[in-house]
Write a protein that binds this DNA or RNA. Sequence first.
DNA 1: TATTGTTATACTCTATAACTATA
DNA 2: TATAGTTATAGAGTATAACAATA
Lengths: 147, 147
Amino acid sequence: MAELPPVPPRKGPPEEVQIATLLTRVGGAQAAAFATLLAPLGLRPKQFGVMNVVALAGGPSQGEIGAAMGIDPSGLIATIDDLEERGWLERRRDPADRRRNVVALTEAGTAKLAEGRAAARRRAEELIAPLSAKERRALRDLLAKIA
Amino acid sequence: MAELPPVPPRKGPPEEVQIATLLTRVGGAQAAAFATLLAPLGLRPKQFGVMNVVALAGGPSQGEIGAAMGIDPSGLIATIDDLEERGWLERRRDPADRRRNVVALTEAGTAKLAEGRAAARRRAEELIAPLSAKERRALRDLLAKIA
DNA sequence: TATTGTTATACTCTATAACTATA
DNA sequence: TATAGTTATAGAGTATAACAATA
């Protein structure tokens, strides 16, 4: 008897590459769509990210914001400058360690962040609209597993 | 009887936002990890993308490459210049329409592309290592549904 | 000495408009 | 006049090194 081929003939790339490609593409499309929704609010994704981290961490230093976002703190200066000029957040010198700047949202910043989060939810709903409740749970769990 | 609350109290963001966030994060991490694997081959993701499109399309014009990658052709010039200088691809004036440049891989480019694809497969295997065969199929199908 | 924030520099990617050569 | 490629320019993001103030 002739041996069967160990793998059936394939037209495209192997399954793992398909998954990686889909992940990169869908992730990129999601980031771009979110940026588009954010733009009319006067926010870019990085700015929204900073405000979100500030809200979640509750008065972090600039170094802590950088650590949370996975970027060097030097790359945050211009962004924080801009958000501060627009009155959405404030730097306050930490009295206990005068090298540190504690960053906090203003009232206007808190309202703006809420707008951004609403945009994020609208876009997220749009993104997963094709999935059933069961499929959503499955996707979330699978993504969490490889995150 | 007292009414039950319509939704149970939640600690984090709603499920759809969790999924969107995970997708953006995992997609970004995947892109970054792939870029890191590509770097020692002397390739950046955009360069690999161009070579891959050229191989799949078989002699596309620069405009067609841009369309396939979703970017303006003017953003391809420097990349193609660089790949051409390193001898991995060639521009050939289309004799039928002398405005068009038909782009093709050289032999060295074909070999380099194969190296890049091998790197992509290694990284993809690493990415989905935590998943069973069944879970992989499920993830691929879910991603394809929202792509 | 070490750390925090800051400045300066350089490089990549993206977007846009204007130019050229061909059609 | 329309299209393919090119050039130039500007903006955002990222990475790195060096500096001042503070610890």
